[in-house]
Nucleic acid binder design. Structure first.
Lengths: 147, 147
DNA sequence: TGATCTATCGCAACCCAATAGCAAGCAAAT
DNA sequence: ATTTGCTTGCTATTGGGTTGCGATAGATCA
């Protein structure tokens, strides 16, 4: 059935076409990068890993937000005012809306296990029951701690 | 003891001087606005409420971030990529580091009661024990729901 | 396989919140 | 009242993100 890379490429093409999007080289490249890293990446980081020939800032920005709109990527702001994108597929096993840990030192991002939120005293206000909660944890990761 | 407004002004001056900051008209104006609103405000919103004579965008930006650095304001990003500032003093009664709710419809911000976060299964990873958690809730506020 | 249609790309110019640099202004100490 | 140096206000710049538009190249059909 071809090499693992070809296999990923085929899966990615299918994903795109399923949503009525053309499977262009640029989109495939972006998705492959995200597939390989399996973590939320900034536009800048994605650019760094892109294959030769795909290097237009605006295009990659458009690709990232189009793919997020069509449900292939999750778009998030971890509080440092930079959008990050993550392949939804690679995290579906964890939880559909999981949280992240951002190392304030090196900027590394990691995924957190499923969390739950409660009021510390009494119950949550009713208006909040339908709200969407985003949790982010910031701190120093174990790598940076040992330096 | 003077009018309530004069009283606020005096308190604000004291707060500034306690941290070695000069009690200038611009800083006092910013703090008074924040004191009156008692909610996280964007730079833009602060500008709208400033008294005559304080009009410089860059200065207000500097004031806001200086005051945040010196611990008078809390600086936060509620996920819409705009900094908001809130008088720490005005919320001390609630909790020292509380969370916020942002209405995605009208943009109104409100404070949440103290929350606690747990892992849904098992325990939190040890690395997270020293981390700082920020929770933000987004949704539709009761005002907008009834429209 | 080649023609055609049109989504997408690549380029360049632009937007805007946020910062930096610097001279003039003003609060505070003497 | 004078001096000192923190702050302001103006201007220029940065940096993440966006837009307009002609050119390119997937997808579809003959």
């Amino acid at each position: 059935m071809g090499t693992p890379i070809e296999q990923v490429r085929d899966e990615v093409k299918t994903l795109l076409r399923e949503r009525g999007l053309r499977a262009t080289a640029a989109r495939i490249g972006v998705l492959e990068v995200l597939h390989e890293e399996r973590l939320p990446m900034t536009h800048e980081k994605v650019m760094e890993h892109l294959p030769e020939g795909v290097h237009d800032k605006a295009s990659v920005w458009r690709i990232l937000s189009d793919l997020a709109d069509s449900g292939l990527l999750r778009r998030m702001d971890l509080g440092d005012r930079v959008w990050r994108y993550e392949l939804i597929d690679s995290c579906r096993a964890v939880t559909d809306d999981h949280s992240h840990f951002l190392c304030v030192d090196c900027g590394a991002v990691s995924c957190l296990p499923p969390l739950e939120i409660r009021a510390r005293h009494g119950e949550l206000p009713k208006a909040l029951l339908g709200a969407q909660f985003q949790v982010r944890a910031t701190g120093t990761c174990s790598n940076c701690l040992s330096d």
